[in-house]
Design a binder for these strands. Structure first.
Length: 745
DNA sequence: ACCGTCGCCATTTTT
DNA sequence: TGGCGACGGT
């Protein structure tokens, strides 16, 4: 094995294969390289590839790791089991189904299915829909599963006086019984039931413990309790577990990720080796410096210092705009200028924002200026109504007990089966403890009109005819039959609107996608397709080059990199988001999100904010985000924004049309009247923030009037140093350090 | 049964 | 602002 391409720390990570190992891998420090060399090294040392398990969070990461392992280790690499947590568990549950009292061909419910099922539960339990939103229950149930908690845990809480817990327990219970009836598992179930099976069946646990001599876990800071237990159980025998993560990039605690998993690893595995990867290969020193300045304001972190040998070029700049439209305009201008300087071809740019709602203005603006862009995650392909409908057909064929799918397609296309008929059928099915599909033969009893009964029966006939071929035919054949014979396509064709044409296009795209699936997948059945599809997402397919601007939320940006990055909406109340300001845990997570965003940039980083913004129909005046000043920018020192571009903008406006702009751009005269004003400010050198003050967060102080207290937050520096102090009395005060005359305790 | 309108509501992130 | 559910008219 040749380790020439590794630095010392990476090499150590690849070679330390005897016991537990934790790798703290900063952003852009080549952790995938270290991991893949580690796996290749294991294989070379004679470990059988199938005795190695690698777990990641995204398919993208899994695929990348797998292909790089194959590159290094050749054919042997094929047999290493590398997959996401969810697909690993789905595979496990199907393999072991018969041993653990589970149907092997269960469906996987996605978020939308979950919400629909919960809506049913809410209605059935007669809960005030105004007071409790489905999303509330979905969140609580998912978090419970992340923590391996059954409905009983809510009942306990309820006994202790938690008011909502009783209702939660009821919903959770009913939800589970409905899932069971539909033979479906949601995302949380995949992990939780795997853990439960391993705990309940020692022989199965032992089998897998023996099988996996080496376990590698990527993004360990994002694991929730259930995932933590899973890896812990599997690794318990050999204790040859290697986890990689970066506590500074933990941004999913709201989704159950438990940062203590990474912080406590060394307690769980005494004697574990610790390696830090700190050499960054991605960004310029300026970018790393700015990012470090931000993240060092967090308290609970394992200190590491990224450094780089990369050349000092590119910039870190701030961009101040008047409002969100102006912000988008300025970003667009910059992209256009960059394109001009690059022979009129667009470069690699990314625009990150905190909330999806912000994307709209960018889309509009980019479209207006003819800037090619892709938007990630807004409306996923598989979330589109027509795709969901076709998928619902496929799911129902696969599993007729799937009520959610049944209800989605029973009257789509219209078959004259209305609300009341459906209601009656559902009530009957609940009474008989049957799925709605199984209740069809009893439709007459349910008081359903004759015409509806006939429609139901002919629908059932159609579905049955396809069920008959579902194991023999491949998924493409089945899907084509569904599309043509269900009448759904015909309905769209008759509609003949712009919208319906678009839907038809999307359906064609689905056919193409299924065709691709057939080409690459060994399992070409409906079952194989549905399993795969439930566990993919849009980020898996993001391409970060090719001269397009990529629009996405900061959360989705993790793991990606771009030459040029705009982080937009850096305003107090938006980023960090409103509620986080007074909760240091949440604020720290926001800060990590900022850190993740900043460290995506290779060459140029722009921190953008707008003094006013229309949010939810209201005009808001925001102040610059603390993350901008933490990054090393001060309002007072601000210089003109894009000094260089200003000149170019003037030339641009006076000059001749550029061919890369769409024609309609020139018709809209107003749109090119843009000139940056003098107060558009920028400072392109990041300075190191030196904090010499004795006021550290967490320090105890005494105030002449308020008494003893603890510093919980601080901002600004020098004479401007502001502190938030929580006093013994329970009240907190914002104080200017210079004036407050605090005594240190 | 279906469609349009009204008014209310929340506004973070989703493997 | 816009997405969604309730309601009422056809």
């Amino acid at each position: 094995m040749n380790f020439d391409k590794l630095n010392a720390a990476q090499k150590e990570a690849a070679l330390s294969i005897d016991g537990p190992l934790i790798i703290f891998a900063g952003a852009g420090t080549g952790k995938t390289r270290a991991l893949t060399y580690r796996i290749a090294n294991l294989i070379e040392k004679g470990i059988h590839p199938s005795a190695i398990l690698g777990v990641t969070f995204t398919n993208k990461a899994a695929n990348e790791m797998k292909s790089r392992v194959i590159e290094l280790a050749g054919e042997y690499g094929q047999s290493v089991w590398i997959s996401t947590f969810h697909s690993f568990c789905a595979a496990f549950l199907r393999i072991e189904a018969k041993n653990i009292a589970l149907t092997p061909d269960f469906l996987i419910y996605d978020y939308a299915d979950q919400i629909n099922l919960i809506k049913d539960c809410i209605r059935e339990l007669d809960i005030d829909e105004k007071k409790f939103k489905p999303a509330y229950f979905a969140d609580k149930i998912s978090r419970a599963k992340d923590a391996l908690q059954e409905p009983e845990s809510f009942e306990e809480r309820s006994r202790r006086g938690d008011f909502n817990a009783a209702i939660l327990a009821k919903i959770y219970r009913l939800y589970q019984s409905k899932l069971k009836l539909a033979d479906a598992l949601d995302f949380g179930d995949l992990i939780m039931q795997t853990v439960q099976a391993l705990l309940a069946f020692p022989s199965i646990l032992e089998k897998y413990q023996n099988k996996f001599e080496h376990i590698l876990v990527d993004e360990y800071q994002d694991t929730n309790h259930a995932q933590y237990m899973l890896t812990k159980l599997l690794a318990a025998k050999h204790k040859r577990i290697c986890v990689v993560g970066d506590d500074d990039q933990s941004i999913y605690s709201w989704r159950g990720a438990d940062i203590s998993n990474i912080l406590d690893f060394e307690k769980d595995y005494p004697g574990a080796k610790r390696i830090k990867l700190e050499q960054n290969y991605r960004s310029t020193p300026k970018i790393l410096n700015a990012a470090a300045n931000v993240i060092k304001n967090n308290n609970s972190r394992i200190t590491k210092r990224l450094w780089t040998q990369n050349d000092e070029n590119g910039t870190v700049e701030t961009l101040k705009a008047n409002d969100e439209i102006d912000e988008a305009l300025k970003v667009a201008m910059h992209i256009l200028h960059a394109a001009q300087n690059n022979g009129n071809s667009f470069l690699d740019f990314a625009v990150f924002y905190r909330t999806n709602a912000q994307s709209r203005v960018f889309e509009d603006t980019f479209r207006r200026f003819g800037i090619p862009y892709t938007i990630v995650g807004a409306l996923r392909f598989y979330d589109r109504a027509e795709i969901k409908t076709i998928m619902a057909y496929l799911k129902l064929i696969y599993n007729p007990n799937d009520n959610i799918s049944f209800k989605r397609i029973i009257n789509s296309p219209r078959r004259g089966i209305g609300k009341t008929s459906l209601q009656n059928l559902e009530t009957l099915s609940i009474k008989k403890n049957l799925s709605m599909w199984d209740a069809i033969p009893f439709a007459k009893e349910a008081g359903i009109t004759k015409s509806s009964v006939i429609a139901l029966e002919s629908f059932a006939q159609f579905i049955k005819s396809i069920i008959d071929i579902k194991d023999k035919a491949d998924v493409l054949t089945i899907c084509k039959r569904v599309i043509s014979e269900s009448g759904y396509l015909r309905e769209l064709e008759v509609e003949n609107t712009i919208e319906s044409k678009e839907r038809i296009e999307n359906i064609k795209e689905l056919i193409t996608a299924i065709g691709d699936f057939l080409k690459r997948s060994p399992d070409k059945t409906l079952a194989g397709y549905l399993t795969q599809i439930a566990l993919v997402n849009d980020v898996d397919e993001v391409q970060t080059d090719g001269g397009k601007a990529t629009l996405m939320t900061l959360h989705l940006a993790k793991g990606l990199e771009f030459d040029n990055v705009f982080i937009c909406g850096l305003e107090e109340g938006l980023f960090p988001i409103r509620d986080s300001s007074f909760n240091s845990k949440e604020l720290e997570e926001e800060r990590r999100l900022a850190y993740v965003g900043m460290t995506r940039a290779r060459k140029n980083l722009y921190l953008c904010w707008a003094t006013q913004r229309t949010l939810f129909g209201k005009r808001q005046y925001n102040s610059q985000s603390r993350f901008i000043s933490e990054a090393g920018f001060k309002d007072e020192f601000a210089v003109r924004f894009f000094e260089d571009s200003l000149r170019q903008t003037k030339q641009f406006n006076n000059g001749s049309p550029k061919h890369f702009l769409k024609p309609n751009f020139y018709k809209k005269k107003t749109s090119i009247d843009y000139l940056p004003s003098d107060d558009e400010i920028i400072k392109d050198t990041v300075y190191e923030i030196v904090d010499n003050s004795p006021y550290k967060i967490g320090a105890f102080v005494k105030h002449s009037i308020f008494g003893k207290g603890k510093i919980i937050e601080k901002s600004g520096s020098g004479d401007e140093l502001k502190l938030v102090v929580l006093f013994e009395t329970g009240q907190w005060k914002k104080l200017l350090a210079k004036v407050a005359k605090l005594e240190m305790l």
